[in-house]
């Protein structure tokens, strides 16, 4: 049967045609397509790899950031604490200083008051002396007018006063 006996002419033509088709497609057809597709596949794989790396880096970055924030917060707390401590110390110091100052001022004031008092007392005493002298004078004058016996007394008083004046000066 002719169906299962290969025809020689067709064999030759088929070999020729298939050979040419194979040559053309193997040279300009399929390698171009498969290489391009391979290139794209490589590119996609590369991109995925890169994306994964970037994601990893981002994750690291955020944890780094967290660490940084934590650190900053700690530092902040420490600074705040320090500030509070130094403030307290300052206030304490100021208080102490103020107390000292106040004490000093008070002391000075006391000293002056004492001095003032003394000088005032001295003035008063002087005044009182003068006053008593004047009073005595007046009394003496009146007594002397009336009684001549009192000259002796006057002399005694004068002596007395002059002696006390000598003592004071």
């Amino acid at each position: 049967m002719s169906l299962i006996t290969p025809d020689f002419g067709l064999l030759v033509w088929m070999t020729l045609i298939f050979g040419i088709v194979f040559f053309v497609l193997a040279k300009w057809g399929f390698p171009m397509i498969t290489d391009s597709v391979q290139k794209r596949a490589d590119r996609i794989n590369e991109s995925i790899q890169k994306a994964r790396e970037a994601e990893e880096r981002l994750r690291n970055l955020s944890s780094e950031q967290d660490a940084l924030i934590e650190k900053a917060r700690k530092e902040q707390a420490a600074i705040l604490k320090e500030a509070a401590a130094s403030r307290d110390a300052l206030i304490e110091q100021a208080k102490v200083q103020a107390r000292d100052e106040a004490a000093k001022i008070l002391e000075q004031a006391q000293t002056r008051i004492t001095a003032e008092k003394e000088s005032a007392l001295r003035d008063v005493r002087k005044e009182v002396a003068l006053l008593s002298v004047a009073v005595a004078e007046k009394i003496l004058r009146k007594d002397l007018n009336s009684d001549k016996g009192h000259d002796e007394l006057i002399g005694k008083l004068v002596d007395e006063v002059s002696s006390s004046r000598d003592l004071n000066s």
């Binding site: 088709v21 053309v24 497609l25 057809g29 399929f30 397509i33």
Partner: peptide
């Protein structure tokens, strides 16, 4: 068919 195939593949390429 061969011409058709070659044209299709080369157009794709």
């Amino acid at each position: 068919n061969s011409v058709l195939l070659v044209v299709i593949v080369l157009l794709t390429a």
